[in-house]
């Protein structure tokens, strides 16, 4: 079986990202899953066990300070060399900013088509995408070159398939044009123990109805009780209630959790764009006519300042 290259995303704090395990799960339907680690010196070693557990039959490791110290261009360069050499059946990346950017450069280097924001991929490389705020489902195919597909987080439940991969070091040879965008500083912001927004299986979001920044503590409390991430509508972000990286919607993150809880959010089409494919949607809004109720599996009409504390209390009681 031909190799299917999966570009690994990892964070120094939590190791291999869940989306990568999802990609490895998808890759099995297309061929032999092979993980590609592109990072600084020593990047691959701490990831091997997890990648093995989820079915990587081989791990290509390209490790160099040049890769770590620049935006995606060096990664795409190394990946292009690897594709030419390994002749894989497909290349899968995460539909994150980084994944899509690597795919873009790879597409130009190989003169190969690319599909982004897929939610499923079939054995023949046909991808399913959701377009226009989740209202339209599209199936598409790369017609030039190999299937190069960026898949959204939470597109599949990752399942283990233990393998015992060899780690193969890949030499990193870069061109001058690969090292033009230099990362001079990385600043970690404290974010506590909550799961990553786009990967979380529960998301609790607050909107303008939350009223101010202090009140977001209510949203956070409920999220913590449910083991979820916190999200926000654009109106809440624009009003300064919550930081921008937590915005859900058209111009924010796209989430697709098992449970999405919308508190004081009206449900504008641009907000729906980012959460419409959630499995279960629950809404609390004092306006019985709010459009969010049109897509909520369960809705409570009423004041969130009464309902949310009561719900939190009830969950604590049940624990």
């Amino acid at each position: 079986m031909a190799e299917v290259l999966v570009v690994v995303e990892a964070s120094s704090a939590t190791g291999v990202k869940k989306v990568t395990l999802e990609l490895l799960t998808h890759a099995r339907t297309l061929g032999e899953p092979v993980a590609v680690v592109l990072g600084g010196p020593g990047a691959a070693a701490p990831l091997v066990d997890k990648l093995a557990e989820f079915g990587a039959t081989k791990i290509y490791a390209a490790e160099s300070a040049e890769i770590d110290g620049h935006l995606v261009a060096p990664k795409a360069s190394v990946l292009a060399q690897l594709v030419r050499q390994a002749q894989p059946a497909a290349v899968l990346v995460a539909a994150t900013q980084e994944g899509k950017e690597i795919a873009a450069r790879l597409a130009v280097k190989l003169d190969n088509g690319l599909l982004t924001d897929a939610v499923a991929i079939a054995a023949d490389g046909t991808a399913t995408q959701v377009a226009f705020a989740g209202s339209t489902v599209v199936t598409s195919k790369v017609t030039k070159g190999l299937p190069l597909v960026a898949l959204r987080p939470n597109s599949v439940t990752p399942t283990p398939a233990p393998a015992s991969p060899q780690v193969e070091q890949v030499s990193v040879e870069l061109a001058g044009s690969d090292t033009l965008a230099k990362v001079t500083e990385r600043v970690a912001e404290q974010k506590g123990s909550r799961p990553e927004l786009s990967e979380a299986s529960v998301v609790v979001s607050g909107g303008r109805g939350v009223g101010n920044a202090e009140n977001f503590a209510l949203v956070e409390e409920l999220a913590d009780l449910l083991g979820g991430a916190v999200g926000a509508s654009r109106a809440a972000v624009d009003s300064g209630y919550y930081p921008h990286q937590f915005q859900v919607g058209q111009t924010g993150k796209t989430v697709s959790p098992q449970l999405y809880l919308a508190l004081g959010i009206s449900g504008a089409i641009q907000h729906r764009a980012g959460m419409q494919t959630s499995k279960t949607i629950v809404a609390v809004n004092k306006d019985a006519e709010a459009p969010i109720f049109d897509l909520a599996d369960f809705g409570v009409v009423g004041d969130l300042f009464k309902i949310v504390p009561q719900a939190a209390e009830e969950i604590r009681k049940r624990k």
């Binding site: 909520a296 009409v301 009423g302 309902i307 009561q310 719900a311 939190a312």
Partner: peptide, 13 residues
Amino acid sequence: AGVKVTDEGEGGV
């Protein structure tokens, strides 16, 4: 649209 209930003091529960 699924079930919609109006809070009459028990909404959170």
